[in-house]
Design a protein around this nucleic acid. Structure first.
Lengths: 325, 325
DNA sequence: CTGAAAGCGCTAACAA
DNA sequence: TTGTTAGCGCTTTCAG
């Protein structure tokens, strides 16, 4: 910057202003500074700027994993909005681990991110405390809660589970089962599924769980294990579409007609759900829109702006009935 | 940090050392410092550290989009390796735009990222110049070139296209078509496909292209357009599986038997390829492994270490023949 | 509209 | 092993 100042024949401050507050610099001076910047190929050190301003123009985002298309979609939507506001995304993968999440929160705070997006609403006590003390905007996604750290953009996983139970009950299935990942939000979907089945007077629900991330093979194996335990099973709800496709595959291998002998419902409505044979019923969630909404909520607080957004946004979900149920 | 120093009864440097170089601090002092850190809930400002050390412990990554599972997988693999080395990922989406890519490169340089991962090997001249001048490790992915900016971890898109042509020719298909995204790497696959078809003496190839990102609907529409133009078509190669699934759908709607009346081959072997009906032949690429390899190449340069990795890593690809061809 | 002075929070020499 | 002295490169008062 000193070099630029010398070449332009001005002081360092003026160069700084020409970059950050061009309206405070006279047009001729501005032109000279720009020329010097161009000539020297000068690129300002944003870290130094962040240190001085305490604003990094970076938003941190923590997802369990990128290899699930749905989280990637949320990030895509988030990035889309943030880019437009001049912010960038610093990424962290928690791999579904609470300790990893806390470590990520620490480094994000250390890097002075201007805002943070988390997946889910269940976090360690330390995470909640630190983030509240941090005092910068935080959006939790992919779930809902009465007591957010700050803001939420998601949907009710319990309600989604309950909706599937109603959907299956309506179609006459009574003996329901569940295949799911051993993970917080999948657990909530199971809880809602159980609660609603009980309310409707259906028999108790047999469940199989597996450590995330789930694979199609997991689905095949769990489906077999489940029917071995509960041969009267008529329908199974899977906490994600990958397991759902696995369950369909297991049915095909056993020669069971879907949905007559066994109905299957997945979750999150990936492309694979509509492409599979028979097409897999699923629960559609607004993955990308959740990211967008989170981005808007952050920007509203970051750049101020007129619009005051509510702290809680429920993006909802919908049961998509296809051939498998 | 001053507060921590006072509480622990030491100087600021000692606190700094206790955090960054604990082996240089005596155990009792270290304990006092840690106690003070704990008590005050102190979180070091990493930006200040970066400013002083000129190392940010951040790697920038630019992908066209996150909403394609394959790039997300590459990032996942990259993140996996970098996390283990104590680095974090700063993300940028170019949306297949060269200007956007250059802007991202600028801010990444400005943020002093320690390394950079790009998608593809075709970049603006300014990007190449700036990155070479930057002097920090850069890995290009998802393609190969003789003249990398620095390092490459990818595969040959041209060879992949050629391999599909051979695969189809071997099975007796002669009139070949192509559906693809209007994008650099898809273009190379088409070029290889064309070249090989010509070499094998097959008729010229009809192609349809569409702006990325591709959708299943794009595939349906393009497939129809293609056969409207070239009714003798026997097989079609799609530059990604999404288009491939769309092509299959179009065939079903027309009542064409696949692969008898029309063979279809996709690209990148997403889960959707094996789940679709009939199962879609595809070209498998090592998306995650490309990310891992890029991560290893970066770390090898960043932390030094014994192993010297080659500048170019060809991860290859393989044609996966399924029911559709 | 421009410049001088002071400081953001940390770390790398060097010395003790 | 610990502390002292100088910055890292930028931005913000406050004067001029």
């Amino acid at each position: 910057m000193i070099d630029v100042a010398r070449v332009a024949g001005v002081s360092r401050v003026t160069v700084s202003r020409a970059i950050s507050h061009p309206e405070l610099v006279s047009p001729p001076t501005l032109a000279r500074v720009h020329a010097a910047i161009e000539q020297l190929g000068y690129v300002p050190n944003l870290n130094a700027g962040s240190l001085a301003t305490r604003r990094s123009r970076i938003v941190g985002a923590i997802v369990p994993t990128l290899s699930n298309a749905w989280f990637a979609d949320t990030l895509d939507g988030l990035g889309e909005i943030l880019e437009a506001g001049g912010y960038q995304l610093l990424l962290g993968q928690s791999r579904y681990g609470e300790a990893a999440e806390e470590a990520l929160v620490d480094t994000f705070i250390g890097r002075q991110v201007d805002g943070l997006v988390l997946t889910g609403v269940e976090h360690g006590a330390a995470v909640r405390r630190k983030l509240r003390a941090f005092g910068r905007p935080v959006v939790e996604t992919w779930d809902l809660t009465d007591d957010p750290i700050d803001m939420v953009a998601g949907f009710s996983n319990e309600d989604a589970g309950a909706a599937v139970a109603r959907h299956l009950a309506q179609r006459g299935y009574r003996h329901l089962g569940f295949l799911g990942a051993n993970e917080r939000r999948a657990g909530k979907r199971l809880a809602g599924f159980r609660r609603e089945a009980a309310r409707l007077g259906l028999p108790g629900i047999e469940a199989e769980v597996v450590a995330p991330p789930s694979s199609i093979e997991d689905g095949v194996r769990m489906m077999r294990a489940l029917v071995a335990r509960a041969s009267s099973l008529q329908a199974v709800y899977c906490s994600n579409d990958t397991l759902g496709v696995g369950a369909l595959l297991a049915c095909r291998q056993q020669g069971w007609a879907v949905p007559r002998r066994m109905a299957v419902v997945g979750f999150s409505d990936l492309a694979i759900a509509s492409a599979s044979q028979p097409a897999l019923s699923s629960v559609r969630v607004q993955a990308r829109e959740m990211g967008r909404q989170a981005g808007r909520m952050l920007l509203a607080r970051l750049v101020g702006g007129a619009s005051v957004l509510p702290r809680v946004a429920d993006l909802g979900f919908s049961v998509v009935a296809r051939e498998s149920s």
